[in-house]
Design a protein around this nucleic acid. Sequence first.
DNA 1: TGAAATGTTGGGGCG
DNA 2: ACGCCCCAACATTTC
Length: 484
Amino acid sequence: MSASPSSSASPAILWFRNDLRLEDNAALHAASEGKTLPVYVLDDEAAGRWAVGAAGRWWLHHSLKALAEALRRLGSGLLLLRGRAETLIPQLAREIGAAAVHAATLAAPWARQRDAAIAKALQAGGRRLELHDSSLVRPDVVVTGQGKPYSVYTPFARAVMKLGDPPPPIPAPRRLDGVKAPTGGISLDDLALLPRRPEPDWAAGFSSLWQPGEAGARDQLQRFLNDALAEYPDGRNRPGEDGSSRLSPHLHWGEISARQVWHAVRESEAPASAADTFLKEIIWREFSHNILWHHPGLPEAPLRPEYTQFPYNRNIEAQRAWQRGRTGYPIVDAGMRQLWRLGWMHNRVRMIVASLFVKHLLQPWQDGEAWFWDTLVDADLGNNSFNWQWVAGSGADASPFFRIFNPVLQGEKFDPKGEYVRTFVPELAQLPDRWLHRPWEAPAEVLREAGVTLGETYPEPIVDHATGRARALEALAAMKARAG
DNA sequence: TGAAATGTTGGGGCG
DNA sequence: ACGCCCCAACATTTC
C-alpha cells in the first residue's frame, strides 16, 4: 500500500525539465522544505516531432551529468527515467507516497497537455502537481488593455519594462533531504543521448566552445559581463567577434534563469544603454514564449493565414546545399558550417541564412526550422518557431517579406575583415577582403593566387542574388493574388 | 534587426 | 558671368 499523501512528513518529487539548475529554482525551493526526490524523465513519445534534437541531446547529457553532481554535493541523487512521464510520474508519486510534484512551467503545447493530464492523474490520488513559473513575466499575466495577448513586440517590451525588475533570484539550498529512490532508475549512459558509435562524432567540436551545466552558465555570464556587454549594441552584430552573450543554450536548458541574467546585467558597470539593448533581446525571448503560449500552432502553421497560400517550392538538393554550407555565398556557408561544427550560430547570421533559405530558395520555413531544431544546442520551441516565422514574414510582428537580405552586403557590413568567413570557410581564406564576400566577381588572377577554383574548391552562387530576389517578390505577389 | 529604385539638390565643369 | 548639364550625395519611396 502507498503511504498517505496528506501527511506533512510525506516527501515531494522535484521533477526537473528545462530548469537544470539549483539557484533561483522555485520548484526546488518548494520541494526542499521536506524530503525530496529529484527526477528527470526523458519523454520522447510525448514530445513527438519536437523531441529533443540531436545537438540538444548532446547538451542534455552533459547538463544532466553536471546537475547530478551538484545534487550529490547537496546529499541527494537524481533519478533518471525514460518513457512516458504521464505514466511514470504518477506511478513514482504513488510508490514513494509523495503529496506533491514540483516542476517549472513549460510553454511547449505538448508539454502543457501532458502536464494537464498528469495533474489530473495525481489529483485522483489526492496528490498535486505544482508548477512554478520562472519566466520574467507570466504569459497569462502580461496582456493588453483589452485583456488580449500582445502581438507586437514594442508595446509588449514596454509593458515588461514597466513592471520593473523581476523578483530577486532564490539562493540554492545548502542541502537536500533526499529520499531513497525506488528501483527502475537508469544510468545517464542508458539514456543514450550521445551520438551512437557508427555515426561520425559530429559533436567533437562542441566541447571546445561549451560547458553545459550551471557552473558553465555562470562562467559564460561572467565572461559576457566582463568582456562584451559594454560594447553589446554594435558587438552583437559582428559574428567574427565574441560580442554576443552566448547564453542561449544555458537559458534554454534553464541552467540559468532570465531573472538571474536580468539582475546581473542591471548590477553590472556597463552603460545603461548597452544593458537595455541586451535586456531587450532577453525580452524578445520572452515574447516568443508568450506568443507560443497563446498560439500553440506556432511551430507548424503560419500565424498570418494568407501565408498558407505562399508558393514554396521544396527542393531537397537546394536544402542539402544550404545545410552543408555549399550555397556559394560565403557568409551563409560560414554560418551553416558554424552551426554544424559548434551546434550554434551567431544571431545576425541566423537571419541571413534563414532569409536566403526562405526567399532566394523559396523553401518552406518549416524545413529550415526542422534543421535548426536538430542541429542547435539552444533549440527552443518558442524561439525557433517564432524566429523562422519572423524571417518568413508570416509571424507576429514579423519582418515584412519584401525585406530581403543581400548576403554580399550583409557579409561586407558585418564581417568586413572576413574573420568569420575565414574561420569557417577556410578554402576562401587567402582571398583579399575586397573579394571575400563575392568570389565570383574576383579577377581570375586573384582567384588563382588564392587557390580558389569556382565550381571545384568552392561553389558558384546557388542562385544569382538579383534573380533570387525578383523571384521571391513574384512569389509574394502570387500569394497575395491567391489569398485575394 | 534591408535593399533597390526613384527623386531632389547643389557644386562644379564647361561652352 | 551665366546657363546648362552632369552626377555625386543624400532623401524618399517602393518592394
